[in-house]
Amino acid sequence: MTSDAETTATKSATSRPGRDPYAQDPVRDVANRFAQTYGLTQVDPYFAQLFAPTVEVWHNFDQHTMRLSGDEFAGAMLRMLRATAEIMPGHSDQIWSLQISHDGFTLAATASGELNGDLVHIARCLLVTVHEGRITRIYEFGDRQQRAPLDEALRAAGKFRS
């Protein structure tokens, strides 16, 4: 049973002009579309549209912030994800946590596969800022030593990211 105050608050929230109470949360939509593409489970054909015109990218291992065109960054990310899957037999990218807030999301994942006969696991965490429904900033945390064999294999295949 609801109180009169709860009923009034519900009516007020749902009757505001221009507010659809059933509209999907734009941050949740961006996070889910990003995660599906990042894990290569369902590549979003409009992946580049998830990014703002300019995106800031930072990695913990070099602590240098890059500013890139959102389109350029989205394309580079897709190329790297696909190149990784291509050169790592048995590749999988398990997203084991996706936490969504009002202004962004965190994604924790582990890429696994085989490189030169060795099984590798590369854990990383992304902290992503979303503003007005577009990704504006990505902070990536990972272990450079875990990534080293993959980076070497990508470099040898001519697919290493710069």
Score class of each variant (00 low, 15 high):
residue 74 A to D: 02
residue 68 L to N: 05
residue 138 I to Q: 03
residue 120 V to K: 15
residue 69 S to G: 15
residue 35 A to C: 08
residue 150 L to R: 05
residue 80 M to I: 15
residue 81 L to P: 03
residue 93 D to C: 13
residue 125 C to H: 13
residue 18 G to C: 03
residue 98 L to I: 05
residue 157 A to K: 08
residue 19 R to G: 00
residue 109 A to Q: 11
residue 51 F to P: 03
residue 132 E to C: 07
residue 161 R to G: 15
residue 127 L to M: 09
residue 31 A to T: 01
residue 138 I to A: 01
residue 118 D to I: 01
residue 73 F to Y: 15
residue 79 R to M: 06
residue 52 A to P: 04
residue 109 A to K: 07
residue 104 G to M: 03
residue 3 S to Q: 04
residue 72 E to A: 13
residue 80 M to K: 12
residue 136 T to G: 14
residue 152 E to F: 03
residue 75 G to P: 00
residue 74 A to G: 04
residue 2 T to M: 09
residue 122 I to H: 04
residue 125 C to W: 08
residue 102 H to R: 15
residue 157 A to F: 10
residue 59 H to S: 10
residue 63 Q to A: 14
residue 131 H to P: 00
residue 47 F to K: 06
residue 113 G to V: 01
residue 132 E to I: 04
residue 119 L to P: 02
residue 43 V to I: 12
residue 161 R to E: 15
residue 73 F to I: 02
residue 65 T to Y: 01
residue 106 T to Q: 12
residue 5 A to N: 04
residue 22 Y to H: 14
residue 11 K to E: 11
residue 137 R to Q: 15
residue 149 P to F: 07
residue 90 G to E: 02
residue 16 R to C: 03
residue 2 T to F: 12
residue 83 A to T: 05
residue 69 S to E: 12
residue 53 P to N: 15
residue 6 E to K: 10
residue 128 V to N: 00
residue 62 D to Q: 07
residue 94 Q to A: 10
residue 34 F to T: 09
residue 144 R to W: 12
residue 76 A to E: 08
residue 41 T to A: 10
residue 24 Q to D: 12
residue 107 L to D: 01
residue 136 T to Q: 10
residue 69 S to Y: 06
residue 83 A to M: 03
residue 129 T to S: 11
residue 10 T to S: 06
residue 75 G to H: 12
residue 52 A to F: 08
residue 14 T to Y: 06
residue 57 V to G: 02
residue 74 A to L: 04
residue 149 P to K: 05
residue 143 D to K: 07
residue 17 P to S: 15
residue 15 S to T: 13
residue 37 T to G: 04
residue 66 M to P: 00
